Structures are given as structure tokens and as C-alpha cells.
Simulated scan of single mutants.
Amino acid sequence: MQQMKAIGFHKHLPITEADSLIDLELERPVAKGHDVLVEIKAVSVNPVDTKVRAKGTDEQEPKIIGYDAAGVVVEVGDHASLFSVGDEVYYAGAINRPGSNSEFQLVDERIVAKKPERLTFSEAAALPLTALTAYEALTDRMHITFDAKSNLEKTILIIGAAGGVGSIATQLANHAGLTVIGTASRPETIDWAKAHGAHHTINHHEDFREQLEQLGYSYVDYVFCLNATDQHFDAMVDVITPQGTICSIVETDQALNLSALQQKSATFAWEFMFTRSLFETPDMIRQHEILTRIATWLEEETLETTVTQTLIGLNAENLKEAHRLVESGKTIGKIVVEQH
């Protein structure tokens, strides 16, 4: 049996603990069915990585996480038909399968797409999870089209516009023809949000309505919440237009007062990027299609990668540093770890 290097853990620990992430040697998997085996060239770290690492019960077998990757196909399963050995690909993986923090990873081809040729592996690895999350939220949950003419009079408020998902959502919403209002509170995050498609910014630590009215808006047609759903819920209810849509990606332990949306006949929707792969939904291949479309826009330079920091060497030490940076809550864009 061939071996491979990987980074994982047995216990869900704070990142400051020595065993929170450890270097491992595991058996290299074999591609079967709809799977392809990818040699990992680069990964990026998202908030979901830190949440899965920090919370849970002890693992008998080492748990390998990592939900963004770019690499090269080295094997294809007997039912796989979308890719060939040697194809350069990018994807976000599945939350219920071993992740990308390893030399090789099995992934269902229906959630994989060819890497944009214009981008390096590191630039591509920064994108899949955030691009899928933003695209699915805008199109599948909020039913926004990319027909710019139909969106010219419409507005979207993106709470947390300078983070990983926000950095893509602002670009996509701008490309869809919406007026994009992003929240940001520091000079560097304000500049980043505006550089990536936000027409205006407001401070998420201050009153939303007052700031929006200063910009000339009484309501917004859409709200995309990427930070503290329960903390911002009342403000979102206040500023959403009648019959508008709010979408959030941030789980909460607090009960949300959905009745507050009743008078406005407003919609509240969740976006969870892993839904399709977790439940193997009939439309699972849509993620392949979305990433393929995103790749086209990246080739055309309609979209830009959002990587802001790259660490060289896919090992426990560098992944700990990436987790620490993400957990600080101060990161702008995405942090990538290259294999070599």
C-alpha cells in the first residue's frame, strides 16, 4: 500500500494546543465510482475549518479536514467521465469525507471543475468554497439573475464584505448589476470592499438604517449576512424591503424571531455550501457547473482571486498559523497554504 502525508487530529482542541493539528502518514486512497484522486498542490483555510477542528468528540481514526483545494488529477474512478489524468482542477470538497489537508484526496467529480488556466494553484485554491457559497446564495437562495439590466434599480447589503465570501460576493453582485453596499469597519477593509465591487460601505458596528438613509436608501432588496446572524437580525429585518430576501451563512445558537418578517412577507434563507455533497442531491453536478462558470469569469478577468497571504509547505505548523489567523477575525481575503 502506498503512503501519503496528511495533517489531521484526534482531539478537537484550541489551535494553541500542540496536538490541535499534527503531521501524519496515512494510506493513499484509490479512486472508484464517481471519484477522482487529486494530488494536492494548494489549499486555503476557511472559518469552517476552524469550527470543525475546535468542536466535536474525540476521533478514533485521525480526522483530516480542509475544504478548498487545487491540484492535478492522478486517477479517475470507473464511473467518472468529466476528467482525465493530468487535468488541473479546483474544488471545495465535502464536509463528511476526508479533506484536502493531505498529499492526495478523493473527491466526487460532480463537485470539481477545471482550474482557471490564468491562475496559479494557490490563486485557484483560494476560491472554490467562497465562490460556491456566494454564487449559490445569490442565485439559488435569493433568486438573483446575472441579467444586469433587470437589477439596475436593486440593492444588496453584504454584511462582512471584506472576508473570504464577502470578497467574492461583492464582485458577483456587482457583475449582476446590483448596487452593492458592503459593511466594513477599518480603513483597510473599507478599501478592500470598494476595490472588489462595493459601491458604498457602512459600519456594521453602527446603526444600519441611519447609515443607509444617509446614502439615500430607505430599504435594500437583499441582505447577505456573513457575520453574527443573531447580532444583526433585528437590523436586517428593519432594512429589508417588503418582499425582500435575507440570506445568511452563519449558524446561531440563538432563536431568530422569524415572525418579525411576516408583515413584510420577507424571506429568510440559509446557504450551506456542503448541502449538495452532504445529501448527494439530484442536482449535485450544479457545483461543477458553477465552478466552471466562475473559471470562465476568472479567465475573462471579470472576477479576481482573493488570496492575500500564502504560506509555503503543507504541514501542521503552517496550517496552525493559518487557523490562528482566520480565528483572529481580522483577516482580509483568503489565506492559502502551498504544498511545496
Score class of each variant (00 low, 15 high):
1 M>Y: 09
2 Q>H: 13
3 Q>F: 04
3 Q>S: 08
4 M>D: 04
6 A>W: 01
12 H>R: 08
12 H>C: 12
14 P>D: 10
16 T>G: 14
18 A>T: 15
19 D>W: 10
19 D>M: 12
20 S>C: 06
21 L>N: 05
23 D>I: 02
31 A>I: 03
31 A>V: 04
38 V>C: 02
39 E>Q: 14
45 V>A: 04
48 V>H: 00
49 D>V: 06
53 R>G: 08
54 A>N: 11
57 T>F: 03
57 T>V: 10
58 D>Q: 06
62 P>M: 01
62 P>C: 01
63 K>E: 07
64 I>F: 00
66 G>N: 00
68 D>C: 01
70 A>S: 15
74 V>Y: 03
77 G>Y: 00
80 A>N: 05
83 F>P: 12
87 D>C: 10
88 E>M: 03
91 Y>D: 04
93 G>W: 00
95 I>L: 13
98 P>Y: 05
101 N>D: 08
102 S>G: 14
103 E>N: 11
106 L>C: 06
108 D>E: 05
109 E>Q: 14
112 V>S: 04
114 K>Y: 12
115 K>D: 15
121 F>Y: 15
122 S>F: 04
123 E>H: 02
124 A>T: 09
126 A>W: 08
127 L>K: 07
132 L>C: 11
133 T>E: 08
134 A>R: 13
138 L>G: 11
138 L>N: 12
139 T>K: 11
140 D>S: 14
141 R>E: 11
141 R>W: 00
142 M>K: 07
143 H>K: 13
143 H>M: 03
143 H>L: 09
144 I>M: 02
145 T>D: 10
146 F>G: 02
149 K>D: 15
153 E>R: 14
154 K>P: 02
156 I>Q: 01
162 A>G: 08
164 G>L: 01
167 S>I: 02
169 A>Y: 03
170 T>G: 05
177 G>M: 06
180 V>K: 03
180 V>W: 01
183 T>P: 12
183 T>W: 05
188 E>K: 05
189 T>W: 02
190 I>E: 15
191 D>N: 05
192 W>Q: 02
201 T>C: 13
203 N>W: 02
203 N>C: 06
205 H>Y: 14
209 R>Q: 14
210 E>P: 00
210 E>Q: 13
215 L>F: 06
217 Y>H: 08
218 S>A: 10
219 Y>S: 14
221 D>P: 13
227 N>H: 06
227 N>L: 05
235 A>I: 02
237 V>A: 07
246 I>M: 13
247 C>D: 11
247 C>E: 08
253 D>P: 07
254 Q>S: 14
256 L>I: 04
256 L>C: 06
258 L>G: 02
258 L>M: 10
258 L>T: 09
258 L>Y: 05
259 S>L: 10
265 S>Q: 10
268 F>I: 12
269 A>V: 12
269 A>R: 10
272 F>K: 04
274 F>R: 03
275 T>A: 11
276 R>D: 04
279 F>Q: 05
279 F>V: 11
281 T>Q: 00
283 D>E: 10
286 R>S: 12
291 L>Q: 07
294 I>E: 03
298 L>G: 09
298 L>H: 07
300 E>D: 15
301 E>M: 04
301 E>P: 02
303 L>P: 13
306 T>M: 01
315 N>F: 07
316 A>Q: 01
318 N>G: 09
322 A>C: 02
329 G>K: 11
329 G>H: 13
330 K>H: 15
330 K>Y: 11
332 I>C: 00
